[in-house]
């Protein structure tokens, strides 16, 4: 029966996709190669003194609210870090330029606005703190 086969394949794909997504969701990845730079003008807000957390959100995004909470908590804990939330829909230019495919997407910028890390999905607090630590410590050798 074709129906049974399609059902089994679909459920198998679903389990595999779900497990992969669980593992990768919200994990901050290094941005290698030519680092894109985001200026204060792009964001419509000043960059943080030491680092900036840029969050892309939409109205149709379930984990955006929880992400906002995590980033606000971290921002309150660490000096010189700003959290800027961007409505992806009203900034499609930036969304296309930075190749944002999902919301929430979080970019970790250093003091010069270079994108050092990015994560899509709801990030864990410890991961955000670690990403900030990495960003701030890699600051001096930037040219």
């Amino acid at each position: 029966m074709a129906g049974w086969a399609v059902l089994c394949v679909t459920l198998a794909v679903g389990v595999a996709a779900g497990v992969i997504m669980r593992r990768r969701d919200g994990v901050a990845r290094d941005v290698r190669g030519d680092m894109d730079t985001v200026a204060a003008g792009d964001l419509g807000a000043e960059l943080g003194e030491r680092a900036t957390l840029v969050q892309f959100s939409t109205a149709f995004c379930q984990p955006c609210r929880a992400t906002r909470r995590v980033l606000a908590e971290v921002t309150a804990m660490v000096d010189g870090v700003r959290h800027i939330e961007i409505d992806a829909e009203s900034r499609l230019d930036l969304v296309r330029r930075l190749d944002v495919m999902r919301t929430p997407t979080v970019l970790v910028l250093d003091s010069g606005g270079r994108i050092v890390k990015r994560a899509s999905g709801h990030p864990r607090k410890a991961d955000v703190i670690a990403a900030l630590g990495f960003t701030v410590s890699h600051e001096p050798d930037a040219t």
Partner: peptide, 9 residues
């Protein structure tokens, strides 16, 4: 929900 931004893009 994930489709939203992709469609919008």
């Amino acid at each position: 929900c994930e489709m939203y931004l992709i469609i919008r893009r």
